[in-house]
Design a protein around this nucleic acid. Structure first.
Lengths: 224, 224
DNA sequence: TTCATGCTTCGATGATAGCCGAAGCATTGT
DNA sequence: ACAATGCTTCGGCTATCATCGAAGCATGAA
């Protein structure tokens, strides 16, 4: 049954990651769902068999996309029902709570803290967001220069946007990507506020005690 | 998550049973799904928590209905995806194969044989079907009179339609309901072609050897 | 009251399926 | 040719959850 395919949290996360219409590689989807490539492979095979996604081979990558706008429509409907029932839940997903709190998404900060950071930036008008597009305001530039010693000219890149919203699978909300997201994460590391977990391959980000305090001072929202 | 609710076979069967819009009691739904009342109760509690069904207390019965046409719409969409993927599958559902082959649905024949019967009637132009609406053709009336001694005037009923398509949960296709469906089942019993199983509460219908042959002669499709 | 029916809760069991480590192909790059 | 990357397959572990027996509450009937 199709519904059971969507029912699994890992698969649901993959599908929501594909909801923007773009195709993603198997490993990207694995990252999105917080599972290992082996597990993702198994899931993707099932989704393909169920006709929900279609693979496209390209070099040694395998890009997956939703087969059809119809599929997106049904997923949308499902999400609508879920929202109505107050079911914006945090369900199982990956078991590691640390992974949910703070982790690396490619090269920037994701998880609870990542979402919180973008929320704070938006709320204080340091950035303006329209869907996926994020723009740094003049106040934002001053803020970055003052507190994190990041200047706009550090952020230019030929092919990559400065700011970009990245959908967070554990929170189902956006966090900050792009060169700015990467630069901020790098700065956190340099300032010894945070460091990637020692265990190889882990995406967990551990904050130091002072790092946690500084981060909260800049991006805290008072309720934790 | 809502999808996981629909994903379970037992719950899916209950929901499809409710798709006609009418409300059913907890025990009726248990029967539809082929599970015990305890299990059904647990499932219904989850469906209610998920906002998919709403209970209505009435005496010592508890009637459940789909909360919303929206719910029905999403379920429909899900079924559509499933159909497209060739996923007309026979999954676990009730474990009893006899129940899948032939059973009582209220007062008419359901299961594999029920679906086969309606298929045959439709194919031979003895009935015309438009969605849920089924109409008996003149050829159909002659056929019934000749082979089953059923005349049209036996079928009139103030509030109940003569013919109606009833969605079969094990086959996910239609079988024949309405007064005609009931009359035919009654006739099969009278002719000693079939009888409801002796075990109390069972919905299984057992065909006699001659009954099976006669039934196949009238409604067989050659491939079993 | 006493009994029967419809439904729910509790507890224990068992099977399904997600998950990961290890190893195996395939493709690309050097 | 060799190594590295991306992905898949296989095997075993574990947790989740559907399932049912037994018992507990209701409601309605006698």
């Amino acid at each position: 049954m199709v519904a059971s395919l969507v029912g699994d949290p890992a698969r649901a996360n993959m599908l929501t990651a594909l909801m923007n219409g773009r195709a993603l590689t198997a490993s990207e989807l694995a990252q999105e769902a917080g599972i290992t490539p082996q597990t993702a492979s198994s899931h993707l095979a099932k989704l393909e068999a169920g006709g929900l996604v279609e693979p496209e081979k390209q070099g040694r990558h395998r890009y997956y996309r939703l087969t059809d706008p119809d599929v997106a429509g049904v997923l949308e409907g499902l999400a609508g029902l879920a929202a109505r029932a107050g079911h914006m839940r945090v369900r199982t997903g990956p078991k590691d709570p640390a992974l949910r709190r703070a982790r690396i998404c490619y090269d920037h900060l994701a998880g609870d803290l990542g979402v919180q950071m973008l929320d704070s930036l938006r709320e204080r008008r340091l950035v303006k967001q329209k869907k996926q597009e994020i723009e740094l305001t003049p106040e934002g530039e001053r803020f970055l220069a003052k507190h994190l010693q990041i200047s706009p000219d550090m952020l230019t890149h030929p092919r990559r946007p400065v700011c970009k919203a990245c959908l967070d699978w554990s929170e189902r909300r956006h966090h900050l990507a792009g060169t700015l997201g990467a630069a901020m994460m790098k700065r956190f590391t340099e300032l010894k506020w945070a460091a990637r977990d020692a265990t190889p391959g882990s995406r967990v980000v551990n904050f130091t005690r002072t790092g946690e305090k500084q981060f909260a001072a800049l991006f805290g929202n008072g309720h934790d």
